[in-house]
Amino acid sequence: MHDDAKPLLAGRRCLRTRHISSTCTACVDICPEEALVLKEKRLLFAASRCTGCGACTSVCPEDALIAPAFTSKALEDALRREAPQGRIVFAAPNAGATGKKILLPSLLHLSVDWILLAVALGAKEIGLLYAPGSVDEEKLSVITNRIEIVRKICAELHLPLELETLRGAPKVDAGRRRFFSRLGAALEPREASSPQTQEARSRIAKTLLEEPFVRVPDSRLRLIHALKRLLEKSGKADSREAAKLFSAPRIDAAKCSGCALCPAVSPTGALQSQGEGGTLRLLLNAGACTGCRLCADICFMNAVTLYEAASLEEIFPTPAKTLFSRKNDPRAFDTWEDKLSGLINAPVYRT
């Protein structure tokens, strides 16, 4: 397969790279070709197995997998062009689609934030057309689950939406084609990326080196933007059932040692710490929380858990609210370096 369709792994964004305690397996679990594997708790990408379906790019909570040949800008431009007309059909390759459609590498590329953005931009009917025997049919439960999430949100906000999956009638046997594509990828040397994709990869690599280490992923910003527009359309101030689809951390005061490790490793800055007048405060900006679970994974006291947010407004970027507050605990240290140093009985230096 041509390298153009294959994603780029942005290692410094990956939760597995950021902390060895991370339990994230989102991309590994969804990859239909086992092109993404974990070895010694590190994520490895077997490019020769990748078919470029884009499934991994839609589930990564930190946007660590990027598709250079199918950019977010291209999809957003297509949505802004087609959504105001009221109906959009997203089609996978070889689905036998006719008429106007937005072609995707796979329907698995379409995450909840993209579907919500389509609705926010004016789409009232959305069709998802897949090919029999394709990866989309194998992972149809993933697609229908995303549909249900969008449907619940729109129902809570009293916004009309018809959303359905459609089984296409391809001119080729998609299952047979996929088998031979896999076989060819295994037997033939990989083709080089096109000059356009090589340029895109270089641009992405440069951006990754320059971007802040702590950042809110584009997919999260897109979700927040779409939800704000939908709330403005509905005029409904609160939606508790729809909000249960989103997570935020909770801290058990009885277990927390006050080490402040969780805000130190937060990849989006959703958790922050403040120490004033002998009091430790942990703050939460729920709008920046992607539910990556890293705060819970690294907590050696098992004091952090994820729960369902109480309202849609809670996940919007607002002044951070106090999640936890108390006088400094004698077990706590001023910084996470001090805490780690005490745990391993050796000096720790930030590099």
Rank of each mutant, 00 (worst) to 15 (best):
V214W: 13
A264P: 00
A243P: 15
E62S: 03
L159C: 02
L294S: 03
K244S: 13
L245N: 12
Y349Q: 09
D4Y: 08
P263R: 07
I66G: 00
F45N: 02
G258M: 02
T57Y: 07
F179N: 08
V348I: 09
F179E: 14
K39R: 09
R326L: 07
R80P: 03
L340Y: 10
S239M: 11
L183K: 01
H2R: 13
R176Q: 15
L340N: 06
A200I: 12
G278D: 05
A95Q: 07
S239V: 01
E314A: 13
R201E: 11
E199I: 02
S111Q: 13
E137P: 12
T322Y: 10
L128E: 03
G52K: 01
G86Q: 11
K100A: 08
G277K: 05
Q196T: 08
V142I: 09
G127F: 10
I115E: 08
A155C: 00
E199W: 05
L284T: 01
A332W: 04
A264N: 01
L9P: 03
R326N: 06
F180M: 04
L128T: 07
A131V: 05
P170M: 07
N328D: 06
P170W: 09
E211R: 09
R146H: 04
V150L: 02
G342R: 08
Q198N: 10
L36R: 00
F333K: 14
D113N: 07
A92S: 14
L161Q: 06
P195G: 10
F90G: 07
G342V: 03
G235Y: 00
S141A: 15
E40L: 09
S58W: 08
I204D: 06
L230K: 02
E137M: 14
S273A: 13
G342A: 15
A254I: 05
F246N: 04
C289S: 01
Q196Y: 05
L343F: 06
A92N: 01
T351G: 05
S257A: 12
A253H: 02
S257H: 12
A78V: 04
A205K: 06
A118G: 14
L208A: 14
C295Y: 05
I153T: 05
L107K: 13
R16C: 10
G99P: 13
K100T: 15
A64R: 01
G278W: 09
M1D: 10
C295I: 08
S111R: 12
A55V: 03
A95F: 13
L75K: 00
F324E: 11
L284Y: 04
R250N: 12
S58G: 07
A97R: 13
V89D: 04
D29W: 06
A303D: 13
K139C: 11
T268L: 14
A320G: 00
A288N: 05
E241I: 14
F213G: 04
